[in-house]
C-alpha cells in the first residue's frame, strides 16, 4: 500500500515536471528556429544594412533590407494604442477602486474584460469599416489605410490590460494610507493623485508594459486596417506596415523555402522578439527596484 502511494506520488511528480518542460522546450524551440534562420539571413545581409537602411523591399527586384520602416510602423501604432489605453484604463481603474460602489464594480469588471475577448479580426474589420470612415469625416484627407485608426482600435482592445492590472495595484495599496491621507483632510482626488498612484506606480508600469507588449505583438488589426506598406514615418495619417503584418504577408505568399525572402520572416521575427524581451526586462527591473513592500 505504502509503496503504491509512493509510486503514484512519483508518477504525478513526473507528469508535473513534463508539463513544465513543455513550456520551456517550446520557448527554447522558438528561439532556436528564430535565430538559426536569422543567422543564414545575416550571412547575405549585413547587420548594419538591416538596422540602418531606410527601405524594406525584400519582395521587389530592387531589394532593400532595412527593418526601420517596420519598426517605425510597429512603434507608431503601439504608441497611438497606449495614448488611448493609458488614460482611459487608468481612469477606469481609479473610478472602480475609489469611487464606484461594490455592486457596480462587480458588474462592470467582467463586462470590461469582454473587450479583451473579442477576436482581433473583428477589431480589425471594425477599424477598417467603422473607425476609418468616422475619422475621415474629421480628417477628410485621411487615406483608407492609415496608422491612426488601427492604433485607436488596438488601444481600445488593450484597455482591460491596463485597467485590470492597475486596479489590482491600486487595490493592493493598504487602507491605512488612505486613512492617513483622508485624516489629513485630503480630498479623494488628492488622495488618488498624491498617495495612491505613486504607491501603486510599479504595478501600473507593469500593466502598461504588458499592454505595450500586447500591442507590439498584435497582428490582425494592423494587417487589416494599416495598409501593409513599409513606410519609415511617424505620421499617424499615413499607411504603415508593422513587423507582425509583414510576417503574415510573406507567410501567406508563395516565397520559396530557404530563399532570402523566406529568411526575412525570421529576421523580422527575431527583431520582434528582441523588442518584447527588452520591454519585459524593463518591467522586471522596474518592479524589483520600485516595488513597495507593505506588511
Amino acid at each position: 500500500m505504502k509503496q503504491k502511494t509512493r509510486l503514484a506520488e512519483h508518477v504525478i511528480k513526473m507528469i508535473l515536471f513534463l508539463c513544465a518542460l513543455v513550456t520551456v522546450l517550446t520557448t527554447a524551440g522558438i528561439i532556436w528556429v528564430l535565430f538559426s534562420e536569422s543567422i543564414s539571413f545575416f550571412q547575405t545581409v549585413s547587420l548594419k544594412e538591416f538596422l540602418t537602411d531606410t527601405e524594406w523591399t525584400p519582395l521587389f527586384t530592387q531589394k532593400h533590407f532595412g527593418i526601420l520602416p517596420l519598426v517605425s510602423g510597429t512603434l507608431l501604432t503601439t504608441f497611438i494604442a497606449i495614448l488611448v489605453a493609458l488614460p482611459v484604463g487608468l481612469t477606469i481603474a481609479i473610478y472602480l477602486n475609489e469611487y464606484a460602489s461594490k455592486r457596480f464594480r462587480k458588474v462592470i469588471k467582467p463586462v470590461l474584460e469582454i473587450l479583451a475577448a473579442v477576436p482581433t479580426v473583428v477589431y480589425g474589420f471594425f477599424a477598417l469599416v467603422v473607425m476609418t470612415p468616422f475619422l475621415q469625416k474629421i480628417i477628410p484627407d485621411l487615406p483608407g489605410f492609415n496608422a491612426l485608426s488601427p492604433g485607436i482600435i488596438m488601444g481600445i482592445m488593450i484597455i482591460p490590460f491596463v485597467s485590470s492590472l492597475s486596479e489590482d495595484a491600486l487595490f493592493a495599496v493598504p487602507q491605512s494610507l488612505r486613512d492617513a491621507s483622508y485624516g489629513m483632510g485630503a480630498t479623494r482626488l488628492q488622495t488618488v493623485f498624491r498617495v495612491l498612484l505613486p504607491a501603486a506606480s510599479s504595478g501600473i508600469v507593469s500593466a502598461v508594459i504588458l499592454a505595450v507588449s500586447r500591442a507590439i505583438g498584435e497582428t490582425m488589426i494592423v494587417a487589416i486596417a494599416a495598409g501593409q506598406q513599409p513606410n519609415l514615418t511617424f505620421n499617424p495619417l499615413e499607411s504603415v506596415e508593422t513587423i507582425t503584418t509583414y510576417i503574415v504577408q510573406v507567410s501567406l505568399g508563395d516565397v520559396p523555402h530557404g530563399s532570402i525572402e523566406y529568411q526575412t520572416i525570421f529576421a523580422a521575427g527575431a527583431m520582434l522578439f528582441v523588442l518584447t524581451l527588452i520591454l519585459n526586462n524593463i518591467s522586471f527591473q522596474f518592479n524589483r527596484r520600485y516595488r513597495q513592500k507593505y506588511e
Binding site: 491605512s176 494610507l177 492617513a180 491621507s181 489629513m184 483632510g185 480630498t187
Partner: peptide, 18 residues
Amino acid sequence: EELRETVGMVFQKPNPFP
C-alpha cells in the same frame, strides 16, 4: 477638509506615505 485641519489623527499602526 477644514474639520480635519483642526482635528489631527495618529493611527494604531504607523502609516507614513511611501
